[in-house]
């Protein structure tokens, strides 16, 4: 537990001192939303459906970039090797890295939500809490997958292209569930009406956090 806290603290401190990942993720979310506002017709770009779709596009892009950065920062100067040499369990390293990339994704999700509310002319209301819950569930599943797969992509040739190819198809079920639940919440329905979708998101999270926790040792081991 102390080791877990140490790695998370280290990532947090790096970010507080440099702030690179947050800046990149927030500006990426902003750019994605701006592109979508121009890409859609103005009449279309008002409704909750479009806003929900735009939010999830921003989340997926931010997640891909954020998770890659969190893993790549360990590749520099052989940091990953040092981590592996430390008396820490591999699964603990996974949990810590997952926490870091999850944190960045939640930050990006908050920024994207505020921007989407303004850009798509939506009401700030209590439904925001339900929306955040859905986005956080999606971010957890995505970062669980991304932390595992980013290590693979970082260590295989042609890696940067490989990560989206691997992660987007795997994320499809959570994407469908998340977009549907977000659209329902944004159009004013109670979260209870999308119980099935939230159930799928929770199942996805449990499945891939567990899988990542168990399988991580096989992807970080020495050659």
């Amino acid at each position: 537990m102390a080791g877990y806290a140490a790695i998370v603290k280290k990532d947090l401190m790096l970010e507080v001192r440099g702030g690179r990942i947050t800046t990149v993720l927030v500006s990426l979310a902003l750019l994605v939303l701006v592109v979508l506002v121009f890409a859609f017709d103005r009449a279309v770009a008002q409704g909750p459906d479009t806003a929900a779709g735009a939010l999830w596009i921003a989340l997926v892009f931010a997640g891909m970039l954020g998770a890659t950065r969190v893993v790549l920062s360990e590749q520099e100067n052989g940091c990953l090797r040092a981590l592996l040499l430390s008396p820490l369990d591999r699964a603990t390293i996974y949990a810590a890295k997952l926490t870091a990339s999850f944190g960045f994704m939640v930050g990006a999700a908050i920024a994207a939500t505020i921007l989407a509310m303004l850009f798509f002319n939506l009401e700030f209301s209590m439904s925001l809490a339900a929306l955040m819950l859905v986005l956080i569930l999606g971010a957890l599943g995505f970062s669980a997958l991304a932390t595992l797969l980013a290590v693979i992509a970082a260590r295989a040739r042609g890696g940067e292209l490989l990560l989206p190819l691997l992660i987007v198809p795997l994320f499809v079920p959570a994407l469908i569930a998340g977009v549907k639940a977000s659209a329902a919440v944004l159009s004013g329905a109670a979260l209870a009406t999308s119980r099935d979708w939230v159930g799928i998101l929770i199942a996805f999270d449990v499945l891939f956090v567990t899988a990542g926790y168990l399988l991580f040792e096989h992807v970080v081991g020495e050659e």
Partner: peptide
């Protein structure tokens, strides 16, 4: 992922 895909796409 396959079972989750099947359930979500069916819904």
């Amino acid at each position: 992922d396959v079972p989750v895909v099947i359930v979500s796409v069916r819904l």
